[in-house]
Amino acid sequence: MPPLATYSLPADKLEEVADRLLTCADRVIGPVRTPPGDLFFDVVRSVNEIELQYGNSLLPPTTALFPMAEEIFSVVGGTPPVIRAPRSDASCLLFGIRPCDVAAIQRLDHFFLDGEFKDDLYAARRSRTAIVAVACSQKADARCFCSCCDTGPFAKTGYDLQLSLVDDTYLVEVGTEQGRRLAQRLSDLLGVADDDLILERERRAQELFTELEQKGNMPSAIRRITGEAVSQAVWERIGGRCMGCGGCSFVCPVCSCFYVIDQTLPDGTVQRIRAQDSCRLAGYTREASGHNPRALPSQRAARYSYHKLSYRYIEREGTQGCVGCGRCVTVCLGGVHMPAVTEMIRREA
């Protein structure tokens, strides 16, 4: 889908853009380093905190929409008990997220908003969130592989504003009406984007695309998984190496498994919590009877990969369940992350 409008922005004005955007929402979440040096998408208090030249953050920015843990409601004792739902009208701006994460948000939108059931918590957050993406002008991280998933190096849809660096100028693309309103706040900084700038961005994106790893494992894996042509031995090998940490799910910007728990606080209040969960864990599918349809790690590995890559799910969800961010490569203790799995499947063929 072509952008609604395009502008140019001198690269040295980016800080001013970020500074102004800080006032456009109650909460701006951007790439910020902790004192030890880890990068997280966190609340930005000052523009100096934002770091745009980053390798992919270990936790995805999607945690701003689907947190690792959140309160659904709480019940405060008394007669009668009072139910409190944590509702906030605060607006949020996600600044500086990568195109792969933009694609992940589109997939989460589909899961939480477009199905038979709409998730109120997600919907409330999403409706008040604007996305300012920054396209990758170089490979963001040694481990990422967006070119295999068609999610980068720049986003085609899903953003409100997207900034792409071309030498000393940013191409600013407006993706939505919300983005147009943001652009209006920056109008005195934005210029006309001439065709040369747009074409140069395209050319460089293509150049980067060809530079990025192109092993072709992903299409092969999709074909073989969809056709149920992957042998049991491969799943057993993958399952055997999986150490069951669940890390691949916890860092995946696309994964949406969750678990609901009630906990009693010292003052007697009962909190209902939703926490991120993983289908790689045995207990995720254990039934009350004790029967577990996916008791073996190999069965869970197969299920995870089916959900990510089988064409049946791609057809239902609109996109494949991997956006190529490469986070699973960092966290996987057993070395059976998505690129390794797709390679094992292709090698078997």
Partner: peptide, 29 residues
């Protein structure tokens, strides 16, 4: 989070873990 619940996430720069945790670590929060 939510006033009472902890969430744990790995550190990439700390040399021991380098961004990886086992299930116990992920759930320590």
């Amino acid at each position: 989070v939510a006033g009472h619940m902890g969430v744990a996430m790995p550190s990439q720069v700390q040399s021991m873990g380098a961004g990886r945790l086992c299930l116990r670590g992920w759930q320590a929060g």
